[in-house]
Design a protein around this nucleic acid. Structure first.
Length: 359
DNA sequence: TAAACGTGGTG
DNA sequence: TCACCAAGTTT
């Protein structure tokens, strides 16, 4: 392991030198504004820089300050987040913006400990903001940093278990630079993102290949250790897109399930694939609706992959004449085309509406 | 505390 | 095609 202050000092010098030569000039690195740093960190959680960057720019244009975000409707925030996934990030961010305005007069807490009490801020994000915006000497340990530490220092603890996280945190504490913690954290993250990459790292040009455990024993592919293996569940969703004039019947998803806060259509889930709506149980209301208009099956069966679910999704498009009065199930309402466009929707719903030439 | 939460890129 | 992964957090 590494505990000798001289070795730590040498490690930090090499790391910083690598960073100064190789880092990307990312937008959120050009500022110490905690709001901007916070925004970037939330967006980047489990998200690639390339995917997140356009959202960072959009959010800053629409909500330049924490006050603007606090004043926004949650629905609009979610709409701007549409397509990024993990939507609780957007809901929590909006909630936290309001809290920062109402409780702290728009100023962010300045330590990792106090930041971590805010919704959506865990250990990593709190430490990142505390060091980048306020210069606190706390280690921000994200997936990149776990990888770098486990490989260089040969740490085989499971990075996803609480036990393992403690071990990594210990090592990180001995490593962090107290002269320039912000650059140290940025450098560790960037080093993992650019040099010590998950697959096929080019160790021949690595400044640490003289001390790296993984390189010495050729176990780059075995580190870091992640014990978790996830099982994917199949789900069969049958959506009914009820249209009247240019209006669509949509509902806000409010259950403890996927896509909370986003809008979709009348949904009947089944245990297996069904070929026709008649096969769906509990469809008396459906039959009434179908009698009023015409129904067509959207030809494509959509397969939509989530982290823990494989969605098999069939859509039926139900067109009802405007002369027919329609009794919608509770919580489902008609929205004009304009409104449908501005509602936050799962990317799957948005895709179908576009492929079916509605949007 | 293990499981759940999205989407898109990659080999 | 598909498993894996990408600046994690919540419950």
């Amino acid at each position: 392991m590494i505990s000798d202050p001289l070795q730590v000092d040498d490690f930090n010098k090499k790391l910083k030198s690598w960073y100064l030569k190789n880092h990307r000039p990312l937008l959120w690195r050009q500022t110490t504004d905690p709001y901007k740093i916070w925004l970037s960190e939330i967006i980047l959680q489990q998200t690639r820089v390339a995917q997140g960057t356009p959202y960072y720019e959009k959010f800053l244009e629409n909500y330049p300050t924490v006050f603007d975000l606090a004043n926004a409707d949650e629905r609009d925030v979610l709409r701007l987040w549409q397509g990024l996934g993990y939507y609780s990030r957007a809901r929590n961010m909006h909630y936290t913006a309001r809290q920062i305005v109402s409780e702290f007069e728009g100023r962010f807490p300045e330590t990792a400990l106090t930041l971590s009490k805010l919704k959506g801020l865990g250990n990593y994000t709190a430490a990142a903001i505390a060091s980048f915006a306020f210069g606190e000497a706390v280690a921000a340990i994200d997936g990149n940093v776990y990888r770098v530490m486990s490989r260089i220092f040969g740490i085989k603890a499971d990075m996803l278990s609480n036990e393992g996280k403690k071990e990594f945190a210990q090592v990180a504490k001995t490593l962090i630079s107290h002269e320039d913690p912000a650059t140290y954290n940025q450098a560790m993250i960037e080093f993992g993102a650019l040099q010590c990459v998950p697959v096929s790292p080019n160790c021949s040009i690595c400044p640490f290949n003289d001390i790296c455990y993984a390189y010495a024993f050729n176990v780059q592919n075995e580190l870091p250790v992640k014990a978790k293996k996830l099982k994917v569940k199949n789900r069969f969703l049958n959506y009914f897109i009820i249209q009247q004039g240019d209006k669509l019947a949509m509902q806000e998803r409010n259950t403890k399930d996927i896509w909370k806060g986003l809008y979709d259509f009348l949904l009947i889930e089944s245990a297996a694939h069904v070929d026709s709506p008649e096969e769906l149980a509990d469809n008396a209301m459906l039959l009434v609706l179908m009698k009023k208009g015409t129904i067509r099956q959207v030809p494509k069966l959509y397969i939509h992959l989530l982290t823990h679910q494989k969605l098999h999704v069939q859509f039926w498009w139900l067109t009802i004449p405007e002369s027919e009065p329609v009794d919608l199930p509770s919580n489902i309402y008609f929205f004009s085309k304009n409104e449908v466009e501005t509602l936050p929707k799962p990317i799957l719903i948005d895709t179908v509406l576009k492929e079916e030439k509605y949007l």
